[in-house]
Computed example of a mutant assay.
Amino acid sequence: MADPANAANAVPVVDGAVSTQAADEQPGHKVFTGNLAYTTTDEGLKAFFSPVADDVISAQVIFRGTRSAGYGFAAFKSAEAAQKAVELLNKKELDGRTLIVEVAKPTEEKQKEKKEKRAPKKRSSKKSKADDGTNGTADATTESKDTAAKSETTGDAKPKKKRNTRKAKKAKGEAKEGEAADTATTGGAAAPAAPAEPKPKKVKTPKAKPAKPVRPIGEAPEGEPSKTMLFVANLGFTVDDDALSELFTSAGIQVTSARVVRRRWGQPRRSKGYGFVDVGSEEEQKKALELLQGKEVGGREIAVKIAVNTQEHEAADGQAPAHNVPSLVAAAS
């Protein structure tokens, strides 16, 4: 005679997935066990039911292919034993998970619940249909009388007005304006309203920006020479802020900030070939002029000059001004 536990573990495979038919065909009263860990085995599930081991016939974890479905079933000898297992082991932990233990429902009951869920719900009619035409007429007459009496005494049974949509309200308002205008012109006699003409769309014209004044070549810029800022020109297009700062620090000059000016368009924004370096003091400024003027960087001889604080803002270059100071240009040498 075959062992029931071994028979329960021999689960048939259908299209690569383990069928749950074996769990449905197990003898005895079944208990559903949900929220199982994927590592839980049949032996582990059977050991979980050790408090009622004398009444356990078999325990089985349901698989989908080679992976656990996360639930299983245990068969018991009697309904009392199954109920006892539910009371003792529901909400207990196994393999780090709190399990759901409840009496399994018969297959017929589960199929019936599925059909009820899938079946569309029918809307209940407000008025019941009469068995014949005479009764139906009499019921309708009685109901109308009761409704009329109720409306006279309480006023609750008044028919609700349909809400107008926005389009209907707009059309109604335009029609009233047309009727009022026609009444005024015809001396009280209402004339058919003419269709309203569409309003012309307003076209926004862009405001003309004032032209930026161009300083002639060789003319000194107007402004006060900076005591800490230097203008560096003829930079290679590959030189960025860090490389510009490294150029000065490698010469032993202290750098407070260094920035390469870039174009407003393009991605990435391309360098314009010049930038500004703040060395923090007038002494460092003189030292940088002596050490770096005409130095070759990347095959180019750079030009270092004292920057001038002008009234123009660096926003014209598409960049926010550094340290909220006026824009800087090179002083004429």
Rank of each mutant, 00 (worst) to 15 (best):
2 A>N: 14
2 A>G: 09
4 P>I: 01
8 A>F: 03
11 V>K: 11
11 V>E: 04
12 P>K: 12
14 V>W: 10
14 V>Y: 08
16 G>N: 04
16 G>D: 03
20 T>A: 15
23 A>Q: 10
27 P>H: 03
28 G>T: 09
28 G>Y: 00
29 H>W: 07
33 T>L: 02
34 G>F: 07
34 G>I: 05
38 Y>S: 10
39 T>R: 14
41 T>D: 08
48 F>D: 00
55 D>K: 14
57 I>N: 00
61 V>C: 05
62 I>Y: 06
66 T>D: 08
67 R>C: 08
67 R>Y: 04
68 S>L: 11
69 A>G: 07
70 G>P: 01
70 G>N: 02
71 Y>T: 03
74 A>P: 01
79 A>R: 11
81 A>W: 05
84 K>V: 02
88 L>C: 04
90 N>V: 09
92 K>L: 03
98 T>N: 09
106 P>Q: 13
108 E>M: 08
108 E>Y: 09
112 K>T: 01
114 K>M: 12
115 K>A: 15
118 R>W: 05
118 R>V: 12
120 P>I: 08
127 K>I: 07
129 K>P: 01
131 D>N: 12
133 G>C: 00
140 A>N: 01
145 K>I: 12
146 D>V: 13
149 A>I: 04
152 E>L: 09
153 T>N: 07
154 T>V: 07
159 P>V: 10
160 K>L: 14
161 K>C: 12
163 R>P: 02
165 T>H: 04
165 T>E: 07
171 A>K: 15
171 A>V: 13
172 K>T: 13
172 K>G: 05
176 K>T: 12
178 G>S: 10
178 G>L: 03
180 A>P: 05
184 A>W: 08
185 T>S: 13
194 A>Q: 04
196 A>G: 04
200 P>W: 14
203 V>H: 12
204 K>C: 00
204 K>H: 06
204 K>L: 06
208 A>K: 15
208 A>F: 09
211 A>W: 03
213 P>A: 13
220 A>H: 05
220 A>Y: 11
221 P>C: 11
225 P>N: 10
226 S>W: 02
228 T>C: 15
229 M>S: 11
233 A>W: 02
234 N>T: 00
235 L>D: 00
236 G>D: 06
238 T>P: 02
241 D>G: 01
241 D>R: 02
245 S>K: 14
250 S>M: 00
250 S>I: 00
251 A>H: 06
251 A>Y: 03
251 A>E: 09
254 Q>L: 14
255 V>E: 04
256 T>W: 05
257 S>M: 13
257 S>A: 15
261 V>S: 09
264 R>P: 15
264 R>L: 09
264 R>A: 15
265 W>V: 15
265 W>R: 14
267 Q>T: 15
268 P>N: 12
273 G>S: 08
275 G>C: 02
276 F>G: 00
278 D>H: 06
280 G>T: 03
282 E>N: 12
286 K>Q: 11
287 K>A: 11
287 K>G: 11
288 A>D: 05
288 A>T: 04
289 L>V: 10
289 L>H: 12
292 L>N: 06
295 K>S: 05
297 V>I: 14
298 G>N: 06
304 V>S: 02
304 V>W: 03
304 V>F: 01
307 A>G: 15
308 V>Q: 03
308 V>Y: 06
310 T>E: 02
314 E>T: 09
316 A>T: 09
317 D>W: 12
317 D>V: 07
319 Q>G: 04
320 A>G: 10
323 H>V: 03
327 S>V: 01
330 A>S: 15
332 A>L: 06
